[in-house]
């Protein structure tokens, strides 16, 4: 497949997001990849140790990703869910399995540069085996119009001694209405890190995220970090849930938010519970404006208050 067969607009929007599109144009880059043009699979490339299968269904696809036992995959696996249309329904059913002792990074790019009433739904199942290192990063871009209605629901099972990192980014463009539900079940000795970043920019933007981690195995550990900003009437609600349901578990939830302009709402709620006295679950939350001194320092460099605020939001939401 050549570049011409994948919509330019989607590629451009990814480039604007500092993503090197060469990485996942079929025939380029070394990594395995699956490209979706709305509800049509427009390219699949597997590689040794990575099985990728897509099947088109009404209004969407089923995507299977299997990382074979013991496979250590250097190049990230790219899943590109692009839509250049303004509206319509795209439903994705990813089924992701990482067999024991495997290591991989999966990057999902949800790029909808012209979205205006588009609906994107996802119903994902992740099964991560024992002794794995698995990173899943999902970056969204919903264009500059009214954004999209995005509703992903995922269940993730993380096996013993595995390290699982989950990253979700929705910080550029107009988000629209976003509802994310994530349940992560962590087995013995596993380590979970979940980082969520979102920026609601106007009246039409509503972002609701519920990120839950259930520490089900002994000595499982987790850190949820949620960072959000809302401005000019945007709304961001985030729930960080952590339960310590086994011995010697350790969980932490951190929420950081900035509210700017009239009518904006940001709410971060940590819900934590430990049923065993040997387990600890803690939380930390900060909500508010940037310190005046920070604004003064940037304004003394000639920036307006608004420019200074944008720089600070950008810094806060920067990928770590």
């Amino acid at each position: 497949m050549s570049k011409e067969q994948y919509p330019d607009e989607i590629l451009q929007s990814l480039e604007d997001y500092n993503i090197d599109i060469k990485d996942f144009l079929p025939g380029h880059g070394k990594g395995a990849k699956l490209l979706l043009d709305f509800n049509k699979i427009s390219g699949v490339e597997e590689m040794k140790g990575v099985v990728l299968k897509g099947r088109e269904i009404e209004n969407g696809i089923v995507a299977d990703v299997i990382i074979k036992e013991g496979a250590v995959i250097e190049e990230p696996v790219h899943l590109c869910f692009g839509v250049k249309k303004q509206s319509g329904i795209q439903q994705i059913f990813p089924r992701i399995i990482a067999e024991d002792n495997s290591e991989v990074t999966v990057r999902a790019h949800c790029s909808f540069p012209n979205a205006d009433g588009l609906v994107h739904k996802m119903f994902g199942h992740f099964y991560i085996g024992n002794n794995c290192k698995f990173t899943y990063s999902e970056t969204h871009y919903h264009g500059e119009k009214s954004g999209a209605l995005v509703a992903p629901v995922s269940y993730m099972y993380i096996g013993e001694n595995s390290i699982y990192e989950n990253n979700f980014n929705l910080t550029q463009g107009t988000p629209g209405r976003v509802k994310i539900m994530l349940d992560i079940y962590a087995m013995k000795n596993s380590v979970i890190r979940s980082n969520i970043k979102a920026f609601g920019k106007g009246k039409g933007d509503s972002i609701r995220i519920r990120d839950s981690v259930f520490l089900e195995g002994e000595n499982a550990r987790s850190v949820i970090k949620m960072k959000a900003a809302a401005k000019d009437g945007g709304e961001v609600l985030m729930y960080g849930i952590t339960e310590g349901n086994a011995k010697y578990c350790n969980g932490h939830v951190e929420c950081q938010e900035i509210v700017l302009g009239k009518g904006s709402t940001c709410r971060a709620r940590p819900f934590i519970r430990a049923i065993d006295s040997t387990s600890t679950v803690s939380h930390e939350a900060s909500l508010g404006r940037f310190p005046q001194k920070w604004l003064d320092e940037l304004q003394a460099k000639g920036l307006s208050e608004e420019e200074a605020t944008d720089i600070l939001v950008e810094a806060m939401l920067k990928e770590e």
């Binding site: 304004q299 307006s304 720089i311």
Partner: peptide, 23 residues
Amino acid sequence: GVTERAQLGITLAWQEPARIDGL
């Protein structure tokens, strides 16, 4: 205000400048 003065060519290096993650 601060911005306008800065744009005219005045600036200040703070005694204890802020630490900002991600910048």
